[in-house]
Structure formats: structure tokens, C-alpha cells
Design a protein around this nucleic acid. Structure first.
Lengths: 135, 135
DNA sequence: CTCTATGCAAAAACTTTGCAGGGAT
DNA sequence: ATCCCTGCAAAGTTTTTGCATAGAG
């Protein structure tokens, strides 16, 4: 799993984020957040495990806590795994039902749903590559 | 779980759909498809179990088969359960992270993603009710 | 009659919980 | 020093698999 930097504005860093939520900054949390910060696309537990040493209980407990605090965001792919990312400006994710790749979509989708608060958008179907090569 | 009829055009019925895919029409399959046909919103395994007698292995095997054949569609809610519905014209689903309700959205969302084939749209966030009563 | 689908039981995969010890503030 | 966090092990959930039998075409 290749990690590549994403740009988070507002001088946000791990210390700030964790402190703002009154959570203790442990090395497990730092590790987990670093991996998510530097990921280009959402990561599954398996992806993360490759780069991390913490116990799975700690992993899931932190995931739950971070989601409660809106530090991260999760959703399910078609491969039935949950994927995690740092909570950002809501943007669409494309999940391919054939190759199971997950892509963050840059193009802005415009729609207004009166009364709802949209926090995450998941599009399922065939990605560019699979769609082109589909029969 | 209240079931209410949805209108499927084109004279589609369970026999046609199953035959078109060269699947055998067993009573388990008829039961499962009937429940999904008459559901107003996507249903979880728990929802379906209430109204069905088949074994869970049969349930999941049929779900897998129906998904392969594009007879049904599934996605995950925030309560970590999978929800199933008859494959229809792609339309958005709103999944509420607070009350875990799932709603099919009628309003059409317009966007064009060049090259992709969008089969399902899932929006996560706060539904009208929870958004209104949120602090 | 043939081949697929089913039910049961067991296993696998994924996630959560209890508890005692460790670490951040 | 306090209280939150961690690891380990065990338990819960959800989904899949193996196998023998039943049933659709």
C-alpha cells in the first residue's frame, strides 16, 4: 500500500487535532493518524495493519473514538471491508464493484438536499478502467 | 418492519427476472425476491429474517448470486449492517449516522462523471429529522 | 435424470468486551 | 497521582464453506 501526502490546510496537525478533542496523544494514536493523514485514498484495517503495530482492539477502539469526535470517517466498500480516512470537506468516493478500488473524486457534485446534512458520498459502480474493459 | 409496494415497470415479475438469468426458481428465492420487491426501502438481513424461513447460508448464497446477476444491490449503513434492495434505476440512498434510518431519495442528483458507470449512490450524514434536532 | 439449490453444522472473518497493567497529563 | 489507554485473551457478530439430501427443469 503506497502512501502519499495529502494537503490539510489550517495548520492542522496531529497534536492540535487530538488536543482539541481532549484526547490523550498516545503513540498508537499518533501512528494511526499519521498513516491516515498521509494516505491518498481511504484505507482498510488490513492496509493499516501493514504499517502499524497496535493491537486490533486498540485499533477499533480508536477508530470508534475518532469517529465520534469527527476526526475520521468510514464507509464500506463492495469487498465488505470498512475503509477509513481523515474527515475532510465532504467529497465523493468511487467504489468499483469489479476491481474494488476506491478513489476520492475531485470533481464537485452539485445537488441540494433541503434539510439534510451530507457528510459523505459513496458512488458504486464501475471505475474508468473497468468500465472501459467491460463487455 | 412495514412492507409497502413499489412500482416496477416493464411487466417485470419474479418469474421473468429469475428465468432471464437462467436461475432456478425455488421457493426460497421467490420468498426473498418478493420481500425485496414489496419493500419501500432497502432491508437488512434482520429485517428479512422476520418474514422468511430460509437458512442463513441460503440467504447469503442467494444474495451473492443475485448481486452477480444484478438483480439486487447492497450497501452498508452506519450500523454496520448490509442493506439489500432490488436493482433499479440508480438513485441515492440517505443513511443517517444518528438514527440509522435509510431513505431512498426521490430528487434526482445531477452530475456527470466522465468514464464511470454509477450504479448506486449512498449519502451519509444527518437525515432531516436528526439534523433539525441536532445541537 | 441431471444438476443446481437447500439445510445443517462447523469454520472463518470481523469486531467488541473484560480486565489488569502502563503511560500521558 | 489520577484517569485514560493499551495489550491480551475471550466472546460476539456476521458471513462463508463442506457435505449430504431435496427439488427444479
Amino acid at each position: 500500500m503506497q502512501l502519499s501526502r495529502i494537503i490539510i490546510g489550517d495548520g492542522l496537525n496531529i497534536e492540535n487535532i487530538v488536543k482539541k478533542k481532549n484526547l490523550k496523544l498516545t503513540s498508537a494514536r499518533r501512528e494511526l493518524l499519521e498513516i491516515l493523514f498521509y494516505a491518498k485514498n481511504p484505507l482498510s484495517y488490513e492496509d493499516i495493519k501493514e504499517n502499524i503495530v497496535m493491537d486490533k482492539a486498540t485499533f477499533y477502539r480508536n477508530i470508534i473514538k475518532f469517529e465520534e469526535e469527527n476526526i475520521i470517517n468510514s464507509f464500506e466498500s463492495n469487498d465488505k471491508k470498512r475503509y477509513f480516512e481523515i474527515f475532510q470537506q465532504p467529497h465523493p468516493h468511487f467504489v468499483c464493484s469489479r476491481c474494488h478500488n476506491i478513489e476520492c473524486i475531485k470533481e464537485r457534485l452539485d445537488f441540494n438536499l433541503e434539510g439534510y446534512l451530507v457528510e459523505n458520498i459513496i458512488l458504486k459502480g464501475l471505475c474508468k478502467v473497468c468500465n472501459k474493459t467491460s463487455i
